[in-house]
Simulated assay, not measured.
Amino acid sequence: MTFRPSGSSMVPPIRSRQQVVVAPVDPSKPEVGDIVLARVAGTVYPHRVSSVDPAGKRGQISNNRGRVNGWTSRDRVFGICVAVDGVMRKGAAGKTLTADSDGSSSCGSGPMC
C-alpha cells in the first residue's frame, strides 16, 4: 500500500505528503523504533513503536515528537513502513507478513506475538 500522510508528527523520518510504502506486518516482528500503521480512535495513522509488551501481545505507539499515544493490541497494527519517498527503511526487511502454504499467516514468538 502506498499513501501520502499529512502533518508533522512523524518528522523527520516522514515529512508531510511524502510517499510512504507500507506492507502487511507479521505481528511478532515490530520492535522499538519501527514505524507501523496502527488504528487509533477509529483512524489509521503511522506511528513509531516506543515499547513492546510480549506478555500482553501489545505495543506502545508514539509520534516522533515524544507524544505517547498509548498501548495497542497487535490486531490494530496493520502494516510496517518499508520505504519513504523510495528510500528503504532500515530494519523493516524480514518483518512483513508472509503467507504459509495453506494461505494462513504465520506468527512466531517475537515481541508482539
Rank of each mutant, 00 (worst) to 15 (best):
residue 12 P to D: 08
residue 88 M to W: 09
residue 55 A to R: 00
residue 68 V to I: 14
residue 45 Y to W: 09
residue 44 V to A: 08
residue 47 H to A: 07
residue 66 G to P: 07
residue 68 V to M: 01
residue 13 P to I: 13
residue 90 K to F: 11
residue 10 M to V: 08
residue 74 R to K: 03
residue 64 N to T: 04
residue 39 R to L: 11
residue 39 R to V: 10
residue 78 F to I: 03
residue 51 S to C: 13
residue 90 K to H: 13
residue 8 S to Y: 14
residue 32 V to I: 11
residue 91 G to Q: 10
residue 19 Q to A: 15
residue 71 W to V: 00
residue 87 V to L: 01
residue 50 S to C: 15
residue 77 V to N: 06
residue 91 G to M: 14
residue 42 G to Q: 07
residue 59 G to V: 09
residue 63 N to S: 11
residue 85 D to H: 07
residue 57 K to P: 00
residue 22 V to L: 06
residue 75 D to R: 15
residue 81 C to F: 03
residue 57 K to Y: 02
residue 20 V to Q: 02
residue 26 D to I: 03
residue 19 Q to T: 12
residue 85 D to N: 09
residue 74 R to Y: 12
residue 47 H to P: 05
residue 68 V to R: 02
residue 88 M to P: 06
residue 57 K to L: 09
residue 45 Y to L: 11
residue 93 A to C: 02
residue 21 V to T: 10
residue 16 S to T: 11
residue 81 C to T: 13
residue 71 W to C: 02
residue 45 Y to H: 12
residue 21 V to C: 10
residue 37 L to T: 06
residue 81 C to Q: 04
residue 83 A to G: 08
residue 27 P to S: 03
residue 36 V to E: 05
residue 37 L to F: 10
residue 86 G to Y: 04
residue 78 F to M: 09
residue 35 I to A: 02
residue 74 R to D: 03
residue 84 V to C: 00
residue 11 V to M: 05
residue 29 K to Y: 15
residue 78 F to W: 09
residue 9 S to F: 07
residue 23 A to L: 13
residue 82 V to M: 14
residue 88 M to S: 10
residue 51 S to D: 08
residue 77 V to Y: 05
residue 83 A to Q: 13
residue 34 D to C: 04
residue 74 R to P: 01
residue 25 V to M: 03
residue 84 V to G: 00
residue 39 R to H: 05
residue 11 V to H: 12
residue 24 P to A: 10
residue 73 S to T: 15
residue 52 V to C: 04
residue 56 G to P: 00
residue 77 V to D: 03
residue 22 V to E: 06
residue 24 P to D: 12
residue 94 G to K: 00
residue 15 R to M: 09
residue 34 D to F: 02
